[in-house]
Computed example of a mutant assay.
Amino acid sequence: MARVQLSFPDDAFIFSTSLPVRITDINGANHLGNDALISMLSEARAQFLAHYGVEETDRDGVGIIVTDLATMYQGESFYPDELRFEIGLLDFNRYGGDFVFRVTKADTGQAVAMAKYGFVFFDYSRRKVAPMPAAFRAKFD
């Protein structure tokens, strides 16, 4: 199986936040576990959306769902590292696009991971994919 290779242009990243590696994020190999990194990506994405005033689900019941996730690990991280999450949006289509992430150690800039979340908008009342709201697209075009 081919290895996942992710690369994003530097200008794709429009927001950053920092999160600490907690002791509960450490796995049996004594470094940041992949499950913990995925949770941290979700938190960073939530902070990104909140920063831009975007709710995960609007009052009409249309929200963002993740369709796929690709992660490329580049280095280890340990407790109590502070990680910097840079986030952007790419590849818009009628229904969604990609959240992209660059994760580095906040103090050294050492690469930890690159990741991509595919997403679509979903109408929870109809249980169907929905077109991207114009207001969302306008914030990020």
Rank of each mutant, 00 (worst) to 15 (best):
F15C: 07
T17D: 08
P20W: 01
P20C: 07
V21D: 00
T24K: 07
D25T: 02
D25W: 02
I26T: 00
G28K: 06
G28W: 11
G28D: 05
A29G: 05
A36S: 07
L37H: 01
S39H: 14
E43G: 02
E43L: 07
E43P: 02
A44T: 03
R45C: 03
R45I: 01
A46E: 11
Q47W: 08
Q47D: 07
F48T: 03
L49A: 04
A50E: 15
A50W: 14
A50K: 15
H51C: 05
Y52G: 00
V54K: 06
E55S: 09
T57H: 10
T57W: 02
R59D: 15
R59H: 14
D60A: 13
D60W: 04
G63S: 06
V66Y: 08
V66G: 08
T67N: 12
D68K: 05
L69P: 00
L69V: 15
L69E: 11
A70T: 14
T71L: 12
M72Q: 15
M72S: 14
M72D: 12
Y73D: 01
Y73I: 03
Q74R: 13
Q74A: 10
E76C: 10
E76S: 08
E76L: 12
S77H: 10
Y79D: 04
D81V: 10
E82L: 15
L83D: 02
R84T: 14
R84K: 15
F85V: 05
F85C: 04
E86Y: 12
G88K: 09
G88L: 06
G88V: 04
L89K: 05
L90F: 14
D91P: 11
D91Q: 15
F92Y: 12
F92A: 11
R94H: 15
R94P: 03
G96L: 07
R102H: 14
T104Q: 05
T104A: 09
T104I: 12
T104P: 04
K105Y: 13
A106M: 08
D107F: 10
T108N: 09
T108V: 10
T108Q: 12
G109K: 12
Q110K: 13
Q110G: 12
A111D: 15
V112Y: 00
V112P: 00
V112E: 00
A113L: 06
A115T: 12
A115V: 13
Y117H: 13
G118V: 06
F119A: 09
V120S: 05
F121A: 03
F122I: 09
D123E: 06
Y124I: 04
Y124R: 09
S125C: 07
S125M: 11
S125Y: 13
R126D: 04
K128T: 14
V129K: 08
P131T: 08
P131I: 11
P131G: 07
P131V: 13
P133Q: 03
A134V: 13
A135E: 06
F136C: 03
F136D: 02
R137F: 11
A138S: 08
A138L: 11
